[in-house]
């Protein structure tokens, strides 16, 4: 099409590409723009802020917040009395710092991070062995296992949520913060496990068996070959699957919203953001800044594994 000589066609094609790109990235651009605007600037349809405002980011990342909400007179008083010890100073400041109003973004970020990193880790460890089993070993029932794993494509979160909630409440898992955390961890792990199994299984099949065979003739055990041959050879695929699992857990809202309802300290970013939006309406700059910061890790990870992941996705290894 573009190779054609007619310039009009060329321009039309360029416009088409441009509009597709705009459609895709416009919400992100708007998010960035709004997060940097002052409130009086929100109604301005231009995407370029009239004046840059970094307050939202500073507040979320807890930069320079120590003097916020402290009355001017107190600050002056502190400046004028140099004989106060640092302990006394911070005691006075602590009185005025309004911590109840601050959105604990960093805490939620940390919760999300710990939960997603560990769920993805367990999922990948189990998947390496499982995928090796059904891509390399022959046994009765293998086909059933492989197909059964794919069945998971049909089950939406809501179908599993009610029974799992009932079970977890019955065995008392949700009555302690630790139990709740573990429960959520296990659920995230099992949600990503089928996809990890499928993607790794497909990858292992592309590794020639002769390499393993040679190692086994030399006396290596099955576990030895997995550890020394399969894992090093498929490290990029394993990293891809790990990051994919991480992203699924990082984005999850449904289970977290039900399980963590009464544990504010364990909130992950998605519920944290939702509560922030509901509780303090129309604070677009902070909402958008939080959105940006939530999206960034995922976007960065995605860009690093993009080539491998898109190959895996096109081969059918995804679940939503």
């Amino acid at each position: 099409m573009v190779t054609g000589k007619r310039p009009l066609r060329k321009i039309g094609f360029a416009l088409l590409v441009l509009s597709i790109v705009l459609f895709c990235i416009f919400p992100f651009v708007q998010m960035l723009s709004l997060s940097l605007k002052y409130q009086w600037d929100w109604g301005n349809p231009s995407l370029i802020p009239s004046r840059l405002n970094f307050d939202a980011y500073k507040e979320l990342l807890n930069i320079g917040q120590s003097l916020k909400n402290v009355p001017e007179s107190i600050i002056n008083l502190l400046d004028e009395s140099p004989d106060l010890t640092p302990a006394q100073r911070s005691a006075i400041l602590a009185k005025y710092q309004d911590t109840g109003d601050v959105f604990p973004f960093l805490k939620y970020f940390g919760n999300s991070l710990v939960l997603s990193l560990s769920a993805a880790l367990f999922s990948v460890i189990l998947a390496v062995f499982g995928a090796y089993s059904f891509s390399r070993l022959r046994y009765r029932g293998r086909a059933v296992v492989q197909r059964g794993v794919l069945m998971v494509y049909m089950f939406g979160g809501i179908l599993l949520l009610i029974p799992l909630y009932k079970v977890f409440v019955s065995i008392g898992l949700l009555s302690t913060p630790t139990g709740t955390f573990i429960g959520l961890l296990v659920i995230y792990m099992v949600q990503t496990l089928p996809v990890s199994l499928y993607m790794l299984g497909n990858y292992f099949r592309t590794i020639p068996f002769s390499i393993e065979e040679a190692a086994m003739i030399e006396g290596a055990s099955r576990f030895g070959t997995i550890w020394r041959i399969i894992i090093p050879l498929s490290i990029s695929a394993i990293a891809t699957v790990y990051i994919y699992s991480f992203m699924i857990a990082w984005n999850e809202y449904l289970f977290a919203s039900v399980f963590l309802k009464s544990y504010k300290d364990l909130y992950t970013l998605p519920i944290g953001l939702k509560t922030l939006f509901v509780s303090k309406n129309a604070i677009w700059d902070r909402i958008m800044a939080a959105s940006m910061l939530t999206a960034l890790p995922v976007m960065a990870l995605f860009m690093t594994i993009q080539k491998n992941l898109t190959g895996g996705m096109a081969a059918g290894g995804v679940k939503e």
């Binding site: 189990l126 499982g130 089993s133 296992v145 794993v149 089950f155 296990v186 659920i187 496990l193």
Partner: peptide
């Protein structure tokens, strides 16, 4: 080989059965 195959895939299968298949039936 059959034994090893099952042993390696068993943790995954068990966890999928317990946390996906069982809940569907329990539902």
């Amino acid at each position: 080989e059959e034994l090893l195959g099952w042993a390696l895939v068993l943790p995954s299968v068990a966890i999928i059965l317990a946390l996906i298949l069982y809940p569907v039936l329990y539902n």
